[in-house]
Design a protein around this nucleic acid. Structure first.
Lengths: 350, 350
DNA sequence: ATGAAAGCGCTAACAG
DNA sequence: CTGTTAGCGCTTTCAT
């Protein structure tokens, strides 16, 4: 048996083009083990369907050939790829990364792999990626946010697979949505800061659509309750510490903001504001109150500790995974809207 | 034409099991356009091979059916998946995430998609993931680090595809390695701090193998140049701000460290040390010098700004992509070892 | 410029 | 428990 096997393991240098060095197939494994190709398939998918002795020989053949089943062929034949697509705006943004981490963990435990891509914040980019992902025939797809191009929606509906929109909620998801209400969270931040006694307000936001929605809700609620306006600073791009520092600088120097409460669209921006306040000698939270968003790991450990809006990213990822698994399991009654809410965590910065 | 098409677009509710609602095929598109399936294939892979009129009809048919080609079938038939596997220890760790981001960008521009997974820091986990990834028949594979199980190496060699090991270098890569020398970097940190005039030393490290290698080289060089030992604190798990703060606390309270220079295995830990030093009233860099690793975005913007070891993560990802693309292009003379080096960035913390 | 035929490596019936 | 027969939806090769 060894000899036949040695013979089959193709040799040669690592070629440029993949596929040039004929990979081991189930048929080859079967030949060595003295059974047909289907029996090898069975041995792998359900060992109890094969006799112990056959199983042993097949395993041995697999061992010596280094056989790795071709999932492409398997997926094509069975119409199930065991692949799940995940589209997030950015993988370097920890809020999305940690959500995907928990999502992946849950899915992987059930034998699924995650094909993840970054969409950025442009819908046309998302559209191209959705097409690319669907061509791999994923068993389900996760995407971030509830705003998508008409073409994206059309492709998603045509794919007839479970689709989960995360990180936001809507009355009319493509299929399922798992997230929280951004308008409510902006409003809650305003209520919190008003009740904490602050009387002047500002906001610092990154450029993404959801952050802007929170900011607008914040400003509207501040106006409703106090009749006052909110000084706003938007740092067009992605959030960063530098942007946070810059924001406070601009708010003070260009908009005459000289104290009060600042609602930031992320903890990173809030941390930047806090650092800049330290440099300028503005005492926190007396002269300046700072509220973040996201409750990152570090929020509790910077000084002063950040008051922030907690969003359970791991729970979000896990809920998305559960919803998909339920659908893949054929359950018809999977709820379409999962509102996981948020919570204000009061620490020292506000 | 419309009528035939409408008829073919399957209707029905979003089923549980994928694959239940027959997707549109090239054959179906061809039927509508009045050509055979191969012609549709050609129109997609090389439009210049079909007549303008045929092309127009095919495009129209694709448009109305919402056809998305089945990449699984394509990959099976052509033995090229246009899929690249990437294995990193953690996706929530910004150093890996940003490297993969640039890697992905380069590969995507050439029509490849990235299948990424987290290996954690255990070789057995990596082994399982390598097998899972290879089953998707990637055209190339990227993995982090140069230490892998024998079985992993065996599978990788058997796959006969380009393999790039990133974030470290070795004389004997599986195929290609792109990274920098961790021993040299630890040594350089020691030289820098000794020459900066510090006379007592400590190190704070996360649990990963490369960080420990840097730390050991740091300690060895300190001993060689000063004859002194290094107080060490290892925070077993992943780096975090809390671990950094805790490390300084322990170093002071348990190991009697009361001033000097601390070499941290990441900027996050360094930032934690800086914060804790602030709380304890230890002046930086006079009483306590802190050196980070990685030169994250925020390193220059915290106060005091972090002195750190810069590693060009984007360049690392781009170099890995270039090497893979060169191999896939059939180039035989792709260098096996790419040392991208590192650089000490002196700011205020040391 | 287009088509017919073969086959990629596997799973899904259906036999025995 | 095991084998045979058909595809899955493409790409490739060879004809026309």
């Amino acid at each position: 048996m060894r000899e036949i096997a040695e013979d089959m393991v193709a040799k040669g240098r690592r070629g440029g083009k993949p596929g040039s060095g004929r990979a081991v197939t189930m048929a080859a494994v079967g030949r060595i083990a003295g059974v047909s190709q289907v029996t090898v398939s069975r041995a792998l998918s359900d060992p109890s369907k094969v006799s112990p002795d056959t199983l042993r020989r097949i395993r041995e053949a697999i061992e010596i050939t280094g056989f790795v089943p071709n999932a492409l062929a398997g997926a094509l034949a069975s119409a199930r790829s065991h692949l799940i697509s995940a589209l997030v705006p950015s993988i370097t943004n920890i809020v999305y990364a940690s959500m995907i981490q928990s999502f992946t963990e849950q899915m992987r435990a059930q034998g699924y792999q995650i094909l993840m891509s970054e969409t950025g914040f442009e819908l046309t980019e998302e559209e191209a990626l959705v097409a690319a992902h669907l061509s791999r025939r994923p068993d389900a797809l996760l995407l971030t946010g509830i705003h998508h191009s008409p073409q994206t929606r059309k492709m998603l509906l045509a794919a007839r697979i479970p689709v989960v929109e995360v990180w936001d909620i809507t009355e009319s998801p493509i299929d399922i949505c798992v997230g929280f209400n951004h308008v409510e969270s902006g409003r809650a931040a305003a209520d919190f800061l008003v009740e904490a006694g602050y009387s002047r307000f500002a906001s610092v936001s990154a450029g993404d659509e959801r952050a802007l929605r929170r900011k607008d809700a914040f400003a509207a609620e501040i106006r409703r309750r106090t009749g006052k306006g909110v000084a706003e600073f938007n740092c067009g791009g992605p959030a960063s510490l530098a942007h946070g520092r810059d924001a406070l600088r601009r708010l003070i120097e260009e908009q005459g903001f000289d104290g009060g409460a600042i609602f930031c669209s992320s903890d990173l921006l809030a941390h930047g504001v806090v650092i800049e306040a330290g440099v300028r000698g503005l005492s926190i939270p007396d002269r300046l109150a700072v509220m973040g968003f996201g409750d990152q790991d570090y929020a509790a450990h910077v000084v002063p500790a950040l008051t922030t809006m907690h969003v359970d990213r791991a729970a979000l990822g896990a809920a998305a995974a559960r919803a998909i698994l339920a659908r893949l399991d054929g359950q018809e009654d999977v709820p379409a809207i999962h509102d996981l809410g948020f919570a204000i965590i009061r620490r020292q910065s506000a």
